[in-house]
Amino acid sequence: MFKRFNERWEVKKITDITELKKKAIDLRRDTLKMLTKAGSGHTGGSLSVIEIMALLYYQRMNIDNRDPRRKDRDKFILSKGHACPALYAILADLDFFPREELWTLRKLGSRLQGHPQLGLPGVEISSGSLGQGLSISVGMALADRMDDLNTRIYCLMGDGETNEGQVWEAAMTAAHYKLASLCGIIDCNKLQIDGRCCEVMNPGAHAKKWESFRWHVIEADGHDFKELQNAFDEAAAVLDRPQMIIAHTVKGKGISFIENQVAWHGIAPKKDELNKAFAELDKQRKALDG
């Protein structure tokens, strides 16, 4: 059972899948523009998380842009902090802070740090040192349960990130305390900085690992809104254990020359590349309108 709140929540929900797809295109556009203006940043891993985050922010989470730290809000923990351009694009679109600030990413004096910092409205944690978000999510889930708050905590990690030992400590703790309000998502884009995950540090079978840690595991196409909806529905119905959605994604998703390219992990598009990318996104948008 996924109990919802009776109170009015300030962020309007999008239920229509075509509308969500359009939103994803707009978010990719903002994400790429921010990165180009910044001149550096993490393009591949920001593009692979767009659908997952769009679904959570525009459809699933109870959040309040007038009171970002409202005690009974759902929480999105971006453990893979380097994907923050996607998070910033969403938070600005949802009026957590002025949209103009997007173009200050990574500049001196900006609240949009190269990796997220607590203080920017809507940002739940400072992250960037990998492996820490799931532990923080565990603490939030424990605290909210003590306070009888009916919240959901979503924690998004990278597949490379699960190399970190701390992730498995948190996996153990969340299961030990049967934290059913906690839903992890692994952005399984199969690439990390040094190359293909299976070559850099073969993680073995993600699903079996989490199952053996006593998590409820769901696999889904991380770019298919329908599959993601079903996955989050299934997760929300689990009451006795934490859930892990293994979202199969494409690094750099949506832009042909960025997709599946290891080199695009930590670089930003140049101006001409941005124009080419925009042209591709325009085409995708037209296809949806048509």
């Binding site: 532990s135 923080i136 306070d147």
Partner: peptide, 11 residues
Amino acid sequence: GAAAGMALSGK
């Protein structure tokens, strides 16, 4: 990390 999460939730 969990202590940090609890502090973020008001503990």
